[in-house]
Design a protein around this nucleic acid. Structure first.
Length: 545
RNA sequence: GUUCCUAUCAUCUAACGGUUAGGAUACAGCCCUCUCAAGGCUGGUAUACGGGUUCAAAUCCCGUUAGGAACACCA
């Protein structure tokens, strides 16, 4: 290409590659340090798959004396959404998956390998693109999208591979005169690189997760600079990860087919490529078929879903670790209370499968376990933090009655396996707590076999007997006494032996009392509930029916 | 259509040629018990199919089938 053409192509003053390289010196890190990144597109929310990938990348960096950074891939200006970076940062902060470098909430950068937002790096990509043109390794393409559609149709009709290659790469061999004429005529153009790949040859490379992979070489002249002057993903990836000194690119396996292109671009630029780790995709079962978790159909595709519903952070992280690492569960068993971050992530233990189904049932089971391992105080604090954002009435109630709520949360709370496991998420706390504060409505169906009048008599009788000073045995003794008085058997065996002699058993009496106290037929330990409720409230509920 | 990846209980997976194919979740039953939850005990369910190689195959090879992914001036 003549200097005239190059000036028309790149009219702006650009730094030289040498100048750019000088701004990105080698990182001073220990031997074996891992530099990895999360590179989301700012489209308004963080997909759980992106988070999953970022979490893995973060763990590898931080467990290997390295650096984890956040790069905003906003080269598609059409999809860009304001405030999206804040959304990503908020989600990462919520789980303590914290970048050492990268874009910040206020739009500034942290770290010296920036800018970390691709739209701000336009000159850098342009500078390298210009260099490629100078070397004859890239060329402007004037094909319109109609031209390309037509080309694709022709190829499909003939059963050929689609793409801009071989004789279909029409602009590849334009003469300087033709290029000049097109530019002077003001024809829009994009930049393609000249592929030297041979589709009939194999490219073999080692993926850290998938092992040895063999794919055809790339022979398509892919676009590297788009019509708006910004780079495509492929070119930006190569330039940025070279300059930012990324050692490990962790990403979803949907990128595997692009690896030949990426390695080719690294070679073209004369750079050492990073190591690649392509992980399996999170999937969802839909009418018996598996598919990617999608924003459109699955609310949980948005990582924010879990914060909104009050899933404990540890449970979400544990679940994702469990999906990624075959040996995580075993580790968790021996380290039940350790932070998830203490788990040593190991490439060789990361499952290489077709992709795991996202399983709420399993997540919920982990949630129960996590909350069961907390003290009432911790449950209280976590719930309050959640409620202040997502359930203000509950937060107000908690703040007005902190000791009582903690006492409620402490009912049947032991350590680990001894605890109740009703709670899966902070959202559930309201249901556990509400009936202590509002007198429940009664359903006569739940009070049978007694009539409302009989219930009143029984309740007022019990109100006279009840004493907070009773221990559990004394408490239950009184209920037995009451049962006998009203024609119920005082033990289950006796009742089962002679059901016709009784109205029911002591269990029925306990049920009726439970319903009077809580409005429900199922609840935690009734003795403890009454203790927490207090004599005044207990008697009130027994007498005001 | 082309290319790539994957194939073990319902789900997540373990078993780097030799195991009664293991665990977790889920499910069922029993025990415990004032209900439920929890806990304890017990149980059922899997190597997609067909060929090889080998004394020996879930494991290695080939084929079939199935699922997933990629084939943009989106990432």
């Amino acid at each position: 290409m003549t200097p005239e053409i190059i000036d028309l192509l790149f009219p702006n003053v650009l730094p030289t590659p040498e100048e750019i390289e000088a701004r990105y010196p080698a990182r001073q890190l220990p031997e074996g340090a891992v530099v990895s990144r999360l590179a989301p597109s700012p489209t308004g929310y963080l997909h759980i798959g992106n988070f999953y990938q970022g979490f893995l990348a973060e763990r590898l960096a931080h467990q290997n004396k390295g650096v984890f950074f956040l790069r905003v891939e906003d080269t598609d200006q059409k999809r860009r959404v304001d405030g999206a970076v804040q959304v990503v940062l908020k989600a990462l902060a919520h789980y303590h998956v914290l970048p050492d470098e990268g874009a910040q909430e206020d739009g500034s950068d942290k770290g010296s390998y920036g800018p970390y937002t691709q739209s701000l790096r336009k000159d850098i990509y342009q500078a390298y693109a210009k260099e490629l043109v100078k070397k004859g390794l890239a060329y402007p393409c004037f094909c319109t999208s109609e031209d390309l559609d037509l080309m694709r149709k022709v190829q499909e009709k003939q059963g050929l591979r689609t793409g801009y290659y071989g004789k279909y790469a029409k602009c590849r061999d334009l003469s300087d005169e033709e290029v000049l004429a097109n530019l002077k005529a003001g024809k829009p153009w994009i930049l393609r690189f000249k592929s030297n790949g041979d589709y009939d040859k194999r490219l073999v490379f080692e993926d850290l997760l998938k092992g040895k992979l063999s794919l055809p070489e790339n022979n398509i002249d892919h676009v590297i600079i788009k019509g708006d002057g910004l780079p495509t993903y492929h070119f930006a990836h190569v330039v940025d990860d070279h300059l930012m000194k990324t050692t490990h690119v962790v990403r979803g396996e949907e990128w595997v087919p692009s690896v030949p292109l990426h390695l080719q671009l690294f070679a073209l630029m004369g750079w050492t490529p990073p190591k690649y780790a392509h992980h399996a995709l999170l999937q969802k079962l839909d009418n018996g078929k598996r598919r990617k978790i999608s924003k459109r159909y699955d609310p949980e595709a948005n990582i924010e879903y879990f914060a909104e519903h009050g899933y404990p952070q540890t449970a979400v992280l544990d679940y994702l670790q469990n999906l990624m690492n075959a040996n995580f569960e075993e580790w968790r068993k021996t380290n039940p209370l350790a932070p998830t971050f203490d788990f040593p992530v190991n490439f060789s233990k990361i499952s290489n499968t077709a992709g795991a189904l996202f399983d709420f049932v399993k997540l919920h089971s982990i949630c129960r376990e996590v909350i069961a391992n907390m003290t009432a105080e911790e449950v209280y604090n976590n719930t309050l933090t959640w409620a202040e954002k997502f359930n203000v009435p509950l937060a107000d109630l908690m703040k007005a009655n902190p000791d009582k709520v903690k006492a409620i949360l402490n009912i049947e709370r032991g350590i680990g396996t001894k605890s109740r496991k009703d709670l899966m998420k902070w959202e559930d706390v309201e249901n556990e707590v509400s009936y202590f504060f509002t007198k429940p409505a009664l359903d006569s169906e739940n009070l049978k076999p007694l009539s409302m009048d009989e219930v009143r008599t029984l309740a007022s009788e019990y109100a006279n007997m009840y004493s907070v000073a009773d221990d559990k045995d004394a408490w239950f003794g009184k209920i037995k006494e009451l049962a006998v008085k009203f024609g119920f058997a005082d033990n289950m065996k006796e009742y089962k032996a002679n059901p016709d002699n009784y109205k029911g058993s002591v269990a029925d009496v306990a049920r009726i009392l439970r319903v009077l106290m809580t409005g429900r037929t199922q609840s935690p330990d009734l003795f403890a509930i009454m203790q927490v409720m207090g004599v005044g409230e207990v008697k009130k509920r027994l007498t005001e029916i």
